[in-house]
Computed example of a mutant assay.
Amino acid sequence: MVPLGRDEALRLLGGVSLGRVVFTEHALPAVRPVNHLVDGADVVIRVHDGATLASLGAPDGTPGAVVAYEADLIDPVSHLGWSVVVTGYAHLVREQAALERYAARLRPWVDRPMTAALRIRPDLVTGFRLEAARAAPRTGTAAGLVPGAPPGRAPGAA
């Protein structure tokens, strides 16, 4: 595992469209899969009126609930890839122009009218890349050693 810097983590996050928003519901952790876009450093998801997610942003424009957003791209065969977590306050998007821009760029995956958007302003961005292990240096006859012979003994030495 190799840690990712903030800029690289946000770049990777912007390259995928599906993630999971993590929040508190009735004093318990809750997770919802959602599609997203990255706007600058903010993560934006669209929500419908009355949704639990819509209640996370404060209605007066002040920061709402603290949430986490996680997305990843990990190959199930090689186990290589990356994972990013953004943690910050949820804000309801109020500007009509921004809502229209997000509606044009972010199509819902569910068959419900999405009338609102939630912006997560990251206070903390963490991530890691899963890379292949580096091969250990080869030993044995290619290194002048006899298989099974104690290290440091030259071939043919008694």
Rank of each mutant, 00 (worst) to 15 (best):
L130A: 15
A104M: 10
P108T: 03
P29Q: 13
D111K: 14
P59L: 07
L106A: 13
D111I: 09
A116T: 10
L18T: 11
G140V: 03
V34L: 12
D111G: 07
Y102M: 05
V93T: 06
A132E: 15
Y69D: 09
G50L: 03
G50C: 00
A142Q: 11
D49K: 06
D49Y: 03
A58R: 06
A143D: 12
P33M: 09
G50F: 00
A104W: 03
P108N: 07
V22D: 10
L28T: 03
T126G: 14
T24E: 13
G81W: 08
R107L: 11
R107C: 11
L106W: 11
E70M: 00
A136I: 11
Q96H: 03
D72R: 02
A58F: 11
V84N: 02
V93W: 04
L37D: 04
V34P: 06
G61P: 01
G127C: 11
R32V: 08
V47S: 12
D60S: 10
A90K: 05
A135K: 05
A65Y: 03
D123L: 08
R112W: 05
L80H: 02
L28R: 12
R94L: 09
V125T: 05
R119W: 04
A51M: 07
S78C: 10
P108Y: 15
F23D: 05
G64W: 07
R129D: 02
Y89M: 08
V85C: 13
G140D: 01
D49P: 01
V66G: 12
L92G: 08
L92Y: 04
A116Y: 00
V84L: 14
A136F: 15
W109E: 14
A30Q: 15
